[in-house]
Design a protein around this nucleic acid. Structure first.
Lengths: 134, 134
DNA sequence: TTCGCTTTTGTTATATTATAACAATACATA
DNA sequence: TATGTATTGTTATAATATAACAAAAGCGAA
């Protein structure tokens, strides 16, 4: 997967900056609150539209279990489409994104076996992270 | 994983029956509507509580991308905890549940590598199913 | 059985997440 | 400049989910 380019409008940049500064997944309405510091009249559709757009560009991942959105950590990375995992800690709510070619193999196998054309192999695993295991 | 037993109250049975009859994932409010055929005054918390309960018993899976709930297809199955995949077709919205020991291996590897204690290895893959590829 | 405890369900209200629909603006290009 | 397209603004509302407390049902021990 090569990173797609896109028109980096002021609004999109601002939302990317907000996500980058947070260093963790944010809820849409958290993003909205932060956005309102510079755009007091911003409304939900503004945020949701940009998030949808950035998701399609693989710049943002939605963590559907948490209803949160996180900046993709490898925007510049590899040329091969690798399986993408999100490790979601249910204690501290941190999300770690990992890329793992080894997962691609079994997934491709399923793809063939069930004749299922995988579009999105983002995988969310929930559990307890290292720090929270103490 | 051995199937946990639980108190099969009238309400829980009714919701399980609704899900079984549907043969596809249902939204909480769809379940509520169906439940109201026999319990006209049923309210959202009644449904959400039972779904939460049945999820914890591995009787129901939540398909978080769709905000739907589906009856686990292997309630009786194996004694070993196998990785569990949901194949979600974005065309027809069908969800196929598959169990695949081969996925367990790479997942366990991540678990060690990142010192992440996986609670829930339910994995949702989105794409296009066989029938919709025509 | 009756008491006390726990689990389950009922009920009211409200919080949270997300989108529809249409208007206005910006941007590109012939 | 005129024309079309993409983006953003704005209002309203839909869809999803939970808090908080009350009532009822189930169950074991005295």
């Amino acid at each position: 997967m090569t990173t797609q380019s896109f028109t980096a409008t002021k609004l999109r940049q601002e939302i990317i900056t907000i996500l980058a500064a947070a260093q963790k997944p944010l809820k849409a309405y958290d993003i909205l609150s932060l956005l309102r510091e510079t755009r007091p009249n911003a409304q939900p559709p503004t945020v949701y539209r940009v998030l949808e757009f950035l998701k399609n560009k693989d710049v943002v991942h939605e963590v559907s279990r948490q209803h949160t959105y996180v900046l993709c950590q490898n925007a510049e990375a590899g040329t091969e489409h690798e399986a993408n995992l999100l490790l979601i800690c249910t204690e501290c709510d941190t999300v770690t994104e990992i890329f793992e070619a080894q997962l691609s193999k079994p997934l491709k196998k399923f793809s063939k076996q069930y004749d299922f054309a995988i579009n999105c192999s983002t995988v969310e695993l929930t559990g307890v992270c290292q720090q929270c295991q103490a």
